[in-house]
Simulated assay, not measured.
Amino acid sequence: MDTQFDTTSPRIITSPLDPWRDVPDSRSNLTKLVTSNAPTVDKITALACFLQLTGQTSQTDQWERLLEIAAIDIGVARMLEPHVDALGILAEAGHDAPDPHSAWGVYAADLPTHRVTVTEDGDQTLLIGEKAWCSLATELSHAIVIADGSDGNRACAVNLRHPRVKPETGGWPSLGLKEIPSGSVTFDRAPATSVGPPNWYLDRSSFAWGGIRVAACWFGGALGMARKAGHLHSRRTGASPMGDMQLGQLDAEIFAVRTVLSQVAGAADGDEEFSRAHAWKLALRVRNTVYRSVQRIQLLSRELAGPAALTGDAAFAKADADLTVYLSQHHGPRDEAALGENLCAESDLDEL
């Protein structure tokens, strides 16, 4: 197998006028890696290597490559996305690149009932408490955990295989993203390494670009469904005006998302220095737009493909279930309200 990804392959984001309907070749090296039965850590590290994803990879390339993975299998994109996030966080904080055979998660969920605090014991940084929604904690090797410190929130790198780190091993009944169990993890004075200064993790402008990276994965999953639905429609015999209409609606919706992502990719990788507030306002606009469009693309794809795809095509049915769960993790109306609040605050400042 070739060890490098073909960087000249069609670009969904940076070339929004190019065709989108081509179904990935099942014999391609990327498809073989995504659909392999390799253990989670091996699959993550192999894909990161093949796709040349490092802590220095441009935002646009991250979004493009994760999008194409999600179009093949949303669950695999959901595995890889936090690893890419962690690589970028470590690089931005000035840390050396981690062992290429390590696979990382980022655990930032903040629930009142599940809190992790960070404390210092001599020259050692220790984590104490329980963190919720820790995806793949029983399988990954490392994670960046956001913990509460006396001086603010702290990002801490931790070895998930340390004996003082205890992931929950209970059931994960979800039908969507069933290969991404997301239980809690207990840290019993687990040793860790601080990554960046206090409050740095949330204050970075790149935190916003990471939010868009997740939205690109949503879109990739919806694009995969749309490709399959379009392929099924093209093979039908006889006229199908309703199907043609749905395909046209899909095309317009997909073009709109591609255009939005293309515009913000230029901003994320451009020369302009964005403040965290400015970048996050862009992220809220993009995430909300992509979220609503992806919901519609998912619905149109189901209607165009018909019940036979949902009941007889395992990959299509899995994509539908995976995407439903993935989208449910979006903050939806709260993010829309946050965007409106930011805009009102700007208006108030303009009047001063």
Rank of each mutant, 00 (worst) to 15 (best):
M1D: 02
M1C: 04
D6L: 11
D6W: 15
P10K: 03
I12F: 10
I12E: 02
P19W: 09
V23M: 08
D25L: 12
D25N: 14
S28C: 11
S28M: 11
N29E: 13
K32D: 05
K32S: 10
K32E: 13
S36W: 13
S36Y: 11
V41N: 07
L47A: 00
F50E: 01
Q52D: 11
G55M: 02
Q59N: 08
T60R: 01
T60L: 04
Q62G: 05
L67K: 00
E68Q: 10
A70H: 01
I72V: 10
G75F: 10
M79Q: 06
L80T: 13
H83W: 09
V84G: 00
V84N: 03
D85W: 08
G88W: 01
A91N: 14
A93Y: 07
A97F: 14
A103L: 04
W104M: 05
W104Y: 08
G105C: 12
G105Q: 06
Y107W: 15
Y107M: 13
A109Q: 07
L111W: 13
L111E: 15
T113S: 15
T117Y: 09
V118S: 05
T119M: 11
E120F: 14
D123P: 14
L127Q: 03
L127Y: 08
W133L: 13
C134R: 00
T138G: 08
L140D: 04
A147L: 06
G149D: 10
G149F: 14
N153M: 12
A155Y: 09
A157Q: 05
A157V: 06
A157Y: 07
V158I: 12
V165N: 02
P167G: 05
P167K: 06
T169G: 09
P173A: 15
P173V: 09
L175E: 12
P181N: 09
S184A: 12
D188E: 15
D188W: 15
R189Y: 13
R189L: 12
V195G: 00
V195S: 01
G196I: 01
W209I: 00
W209N: 01
G210F: 07
A215V: 06
A215R: 01
C217F: 07
W218R: 00
A222R: 02
A222M: 05
K228L: 11
G230Y: 02
G230D: 03
H231Q: 10
R235M: 14
R236P: 06
G243I: 11
D244P: 04
Q246C: 08
L247V: 03
L250G: 01
D251E: 15
A252L: 13
E253F: 14
L261V: 09
D269V: 07
G270C: 12
E272W: 14
E273F: 15
E273C: 14
R276Q: 10
A279T: 08
L282D: 03
L284R: 03
R285V: 13
V290Y: 04
R296I: 06
I297W: 06
I297C: 05
Q298W: 09
L300Y: 14
R302E: 15
A305M: 08
G306Q: 05
G306K: 04
P307C: 10
A309Y: 15
T311V: 09
T311L: 15
D313A: 08
F316L: 07
F316Q: 00
F316K: 01
D320H: 09
A321G: 05
V325Q: 04
Y326M: 04
S328P: 06
G332N: 08
G332R: 06
E336F: 11
G340E: 12
E341Q: 12
A345F: 13
S347A: 13
D348V: 14
